[in-house]
């Protein structure tokens, strides 16, 4: 590939803005007990960092989660709590 092409064409990649988890001031913490696995948190996560495994386990990718808090707001079970990040 000509070198100028490398300067014009960007490649698909996670973390195009770096580790956006560092933006967080509050961290969503998932409570398995309260969760009814409706997956609204996943569907409405703007960052696409919530995944479900085996139809059961909700995993939040804190490397990139910006801590917007939409998941906690939308959860009908109050199963996600926003906890202040420590320094």
């Amino acid at each position: 590939m000509s070198s100028w092409l490398e300067h014009l064409i960007a490649k698909s990649s996670e973390g195009s803005a770096g580790k956006t988890g560092l933006w967080r001031t509050f961290k969503p913490v998932h409570n398995v007990e309260k969760c009814n696995r409706c997956l609204l948190c996943l569907y409405y996560c703007p960052e696409n960092v919530i995944k479900v495994y085996h139809h059961r386990f909700i995993i939040i990718n804190y490397e990139y989660c910006k801590g917007c808090g939409i998941c906690a707001e939308i959860c009908p079970q109050d199963a996600i709590e926003m906890v202040e990040e420590e320094e």
Binding site: A17, E47, Y64, G67
Partner: peptide, 14 residues
């Protein structure tokens, strides 16, 4: 993809 420059809670991202 995750880790993009959108603001927190960005509606476009949704």
């Amino acid at each position: 993809l995750p880790g993009n420059p959108a603001c927190q809670g960005c509606p476009h991202a949704l």
